[in-house]
């Protein structure tokens, strides 16, 4: 790989999709632009799922190395940000497989219980009526973590299990219990 020192990060108006195409063609400048755009929010979002900053940094690094290697596989369908997050969350699962989470406060940074409800909250779980925010908030942290990992992060049962440090079967039972609890709450 030969690179001139004068290669600069790309302009603002270039889309993430364009950047991914350029990365697929081997441009490290495009990779850097992509990194500058996405590293911050990825770091924040990963930090909500892993309390150890060293692991978050490692996952962020792995993520962009993976973007570099597999940018050609981005089909142009869907948000590039969602595609990158899909890589990042799986890299986090891999990191937890190498170093099982001992006592990470996973998915449980809740310090503010004044739940704010938005239209999106309702849409997320396909629930049109009822106090979804309150219902989710009243779930036990274990059940809430399972809902978040599977429904919101789109992980498979097995991946969610690795992320949360529990067997896949436990994820399934907790998800069933969470669904039942939400249905009951929202039916009231």
């Amino acid at each position: 790989m030969t690179l001139t020192a004068t290669e600069r990060p790309m302009e603002e108006h270039v889309t993430d999709g364009d950047l991914l195409s350029a990365v697929a063609d081997g441009s490290t400048a495009a990779l850097e632009s992509l990194y500058r755009r996405h590293a911050s929010w990825l770091t924040v979002r990963l930090s909500r799922r892993c309390a150890d900053p060293a692991i978050v940094d490692e996952v962020l690094q792995d993520t962009f190395v993976a973007v570099w290697k597999s940018a050609g596989r981005y089909t142009g369908q869907g948000e590039p940000a969602a595609w990158i997050w899909g890589i990042a969350i799986r890299r986090l699962v891999d990191a937890f497989r190498r170093t099982p989470p001992a006592a990470y406060p996973l998915y449980d940074h809740v310090t503010d219980l004044n739940l704010i409800e938005s239209a999106e909250d309702r849409v997320l779980l396909g629930v049109e009526h009822g106090d979804l925010a309150g219902a989710l908030g009243r779930l036990s942290p274990e059940l809430r973590a399972v809902v978040q990992a599977t429904v919101l992060d789109g992980l498979t049962t097995r991946e969610a299990g690795r992320l949360l440090g529990v067997p896949a079967g436990t994820v399934k039972t907790r998800m069933m219990r969470a669904r039942a609890a939400l249905r009951k709450e929202l039916a009231r």
């Binding site: 755009r37 996405h38 948000e79 940000a81 940074h109 809740v110 503010d112 704010i116 909250d121």
Partner: peptide, 22 residues
């Protein structure tokens, strides 16, 4: 990390689509 899980989830879903908020 100072928002509830539910609000955080809304934020995260929104961030995927909104470069300005990112």
């Amino acid at each position: 990390g100072g928002v509830s899980t539910v609000l955080a989830s809304s934020v995260e879903q929104h961030l995927i689509r909104c470069a300005a908020c990112r």
